[in-house]
């Protein structure tokens, strides 16, 4: 029987002693946010099928704290765009993004969501970053579940390191203003 090495969550820097551990609030909030991301699956095509495999028992996304999918943007932290977004669907995607509560992240899965993919036509949006800001892109057509897990771990790293004040900063507002979002 082979043994499985379980890597525990890396402890943030802090003061440690017998029976206690003290660190900054920012790091605790970062850990909590990173390990309890609630994704909103915006699955429009075959990448959505790969996402089903990612959620199922073999790959099991719930191991990373994303057990609960949210189909309302109000409770979601992570918008996962999986599949071709047509130009007609772009305003819908944008409204879903805008109605999400802060803090929020966007993961663009697959070639279609990231760049339009093979659908270089009049009807398809050439990448969702034309309407909303994207944090992590996953390449592939469609990507394997391992790649999706890798993308979510990248989002976790982002959420761990962004800090408490980032979402109130003028830089963040300027970034959203580029997309015409208040």
């Amino acid at each position: 029987m082979s043994t499985i090495d379980i890597k525990p969550e890396n402890k943030p820097e802090g003061l440690e002693g017998a029976g206690f551990f003290a660190t900054s609030l920012e790091k605790v909030v970062g850990l909590a946010r990173a390990n309890s991301l609630w994704p909103l699956p915006f699955a429009t095509s075959c990448c959505g099928i790969e996402f089903m495999a990612t959620m199922a028992s073999h790959y099991d996304l719930s191991r990373f704290g994303s057990e609960r999918l949210s189909f309302s943007p109000r409770q979601a932290d992570l918008l996962m765009v999986m599949g071709t977004i047509s130009k007609k669907l772009a305003p819908v995607l944008r409204q879903v993004y805008e109605q999400m509560a802060e803090p929020k992240w966007v993961l663009s899965m697959g070639a279609c969501a990231s760049s339009g993919g093979i659908f270089d036509t009049y009807s398809v949006l050439q990448g969702i970053d034309r309407v909303i800001p994207v944090d992590v892109y996953i390449p592939g057509c469609p990507p394997r579940p391992e790649q999706v897990l890798d993308g979510i771990l990248k989002i976790q790293e982002l959420s761990k390191s962004e800090g408490l004040r980032m979402r109130n900063s003028p830089e963040y507002k300027a970034k959203l203003a580029l997309y015409g979002i208040e």
Partner: peptide, 19 residues
Amino acid sequence: YLGPKRKSKIKDEAFECGI
């Protein structure tokens, strides 16, 4: 008090699947 917030007209509208 701890969480960041953002309010706009679109944000406060009723959610009807983005439509």
